[in-house]
Design a protein around this nucleic acid. Structure first.
Lengths: 190, 190
DNA sequence: ATATTAAATGGAGCAATCCTCCACTTATAT
DNA sequence: ATATAAGTGGAGGATTGCTCCATTTAATAT
């Protein structure tokens, strides 16, 4: 699971704390995958074989935990996206990013609704994700591929909507791309 | 508050039961307005001066209660919408409906997430609302104002997402229309 | 009026969950 | 080896959800 340095603040974790942190993350991923993003945190602690107090000390809120869980995947997503700059035009690149983000947001049942909140949690990954999204949007707008009155929040709104749809109907990739294209039509300048 | 006949099933309520039903509804509206749609149902019962058991007997789930609360307003919304048939073209009419529904879904904090579920509760208002939505969509599609591969569920998701966005950033009407137009641009055939 | 009965009531009580607090344990720096 | 700051676990208070059933009450029949 996660291993990189995702401490934004000063002091590094003590060895045992770091170990527990990982166990909590793996447990949380398992539990959330099984029971959705609203699953009981006590269950997570139990599965991680860690006291509930430890969990709360490390992740004071559920969003913090979700944020940490998304960290890696968002980092990868952002990196991936930057890679595409060479091969894709701004519009297509943005489209690819959106599709990936939707798929990410459907990783746990119930994650979609929280996407906005989670992206605002202060992990490197979440930051990288939003930064990349903003960069792509701006780039696409400069290339006149996207109307200039579209904000990043608007984009998030679109992505949330699609994620919600996908969450209910089962995350078939073809459906995802279909919906993204459907709504891109509205975002694109005509 | 509510007074109309919204008994879908057989037997009419006993006098005391009907009285209590109303008190629960007024109390619920007050409590949900103050504390959001996830407020404690015990609080609602307390405010209605009714035992918690009574509340559950009448409204077995929170969705049922929310559904009943939305009943009136949805009825009005649907009626309003039908009125517009004469003055508006199908596309504009659908747009107006969506805007109104978003505003409705932002009536209580936390209502947006549940919109889909609530609309499926079996009250006359909820039924009228979805029926009207479907009618408008079909009408707009016949008029080639909307792509024919858009489903009503797609529409609902969009409305939910916009409501979520609006819920966080404060329900400024201009933002609502902006977002609706954004999505419509994509939904509309060009 | 009275009796009958089916509907309705209220709230005690169990279970789940959240989250805090703090007496104890342990890693690490000296 | 010791000191100490960081970390731990889990008991426990608070909130909420929801069920169950002994009692009350409205509606109806007599």
């Amino acid at each position: 699971m996660t291993e990189a340095i995702q401490q934004i603040d000063e002091t590094p974790l003590r060895a045992d704390a770091a170990r527990n942190r990982e166990r909590i993350l793996t447990a949380a991923d398992a539990v959330f995958s099984e029971r959705g993003a609203d699953a009981s945190l006590e269950d997570v602690a139990k599965r991680a074989k860690v006291g509930i107090g430890t969990l709360y000390r490390r992740f004071p809120t559920r969003e913090a935990l979700l944020g940490a869980l998304c960290d890696e995947r968002l980092l990868a997503l952002a990196a991936n996206s930057r890679t595409r700059d060479d091969v894709m035009d701004p519009g297509t690149s943005l489209r690819a990013f959106m599709i990936e983000l939707v798929i990410h947001a459907s990783h746990y049942q119930g994650l979609a609704v929280q996407l906005g909140t989670v992206l605002k949690s202060h992990t490197t990954g979440c930051h990288a994700g939003t930064a990349e999204g903003q960069r792509l949007l701006q780039r696409a707008q400069k290339a006149k591929a996207v109307a200039k009155d579209v904000s990043f929040d608007d984009l998030l709104c679109v992505i949330t909507a699609i994620s919600l749809a996908v969450e209910q109907g089962g995350a078939v990739k073809s459906r995802v791309t279909h919906l993204v294209d459907l709504f891109l039509g509205g975002i694109r300048t005509r």
